[in-house]
Design a protein around this nucleic acid. Structure first.
Length: 219
DNA sequence: AACCAGGAGACAT
DNA sequence: ATGTCTCATGGT
């Protein structure tokens, strides 16, 4: 089987097993961006609690977040952990977002320009930037996370210690001939996350691979 | 009771 | 460029 087919096959196996994931959860592009920052190294269920706090205080809005005192904002973010750093990150993101002209202005930039701009923000690293590019701006970007590394290194498709950009470009190149890249990358990343969360409780769909760090099912 | 969660920045080497 | 430390709550 050719390499592109191998990568496509893993997607097909997971899609057949789990179905469409309807990502990213959120009612607006801005909510998706906020969620992307808050979910760093944090479970999504905790992010939902923080988002409820923001909405309940009418603060799911860039200007409102900037105007909220750090102490108060941090208290709303308490469930996500790292609430002091994330309050600061959220403020610096909102500051940039307003100065950049918000969604409609940013949407004019091409994908690489937009990624560069996102990465200039304190608190937005490569994965968060690509989450935002894919799920808020609907750009054909393959998101690399810890699960993606584990899954494909255990499948023997990658080494696992490649740099972020090298992996992203590699995945995008291998799948570039596939139709509807935005939809494919959207489902692919979300399926990997779902697979990681529920695989151990069900059964393998891909060569007996489990995504937990110390899984003994994998040689 | 350890382990893990949809990472990133600061800092040293 | 690459490795280590810190940030911190909540579920299993």
């Amino acid at each position: 089987m050719s390499t592109p087919q191998k990568y496509r096959r893993i997607f097909d196996l997971m899609f057949k097993a789990y179905g469409p994931q309807h990502w990213w959860p959120g009612d607006s592009p801005f909510e998706i961006m906020v969620g992307a920052v808050l979910t760093q190294n944090t479970s999504w269920s905790n992010v939902e609690k923080a988002v409820v706090h923001l909405k309940g205080n009418g603060a799911l809005d860039p200007q409102a977040i900037i105007d909220t005192h750090h102490k108060r904002l941090a208290s709303w973010l308490r469930p996500v952990g790292y609430f002091n750093v994330k309050a600061k990150r959220l403020k610096s993101f909102c500051q940039w977002y307003l100065e950049a002209g918000q969604f409609n202005r940013l949407a004019r930039l091409d994908t690489d320009e937009l990624r560069k701009a996102l990465l200039s923000v304190n608190g937005v690293g490569p994965e968060t930037a690509d989450d935002i590019l894919l799920y808020a701006f609907e750009r054909p970007v393959f998101v690399i996370d810890a699960y993606t590394r584990r899954l494909f290194s255990r499948l023997g498709y990658i080494g696992g210690d490649e740099g972020y950009e090298a992996l992203r470009v590699s995945f995008e190149k291998k799948l570039q001939k596939q139709p509807d890249l935005v939809q494919l990358f959207n489902e692919y990343h979300s399926l990997i996350v779902w697979h990681a969360k529920y695989f151990c409780k069900t059964r393998p769909v891909c060569e007996g691979c489990c995504l937990r760090k110390h899984c003994t099912l994998v040689s």
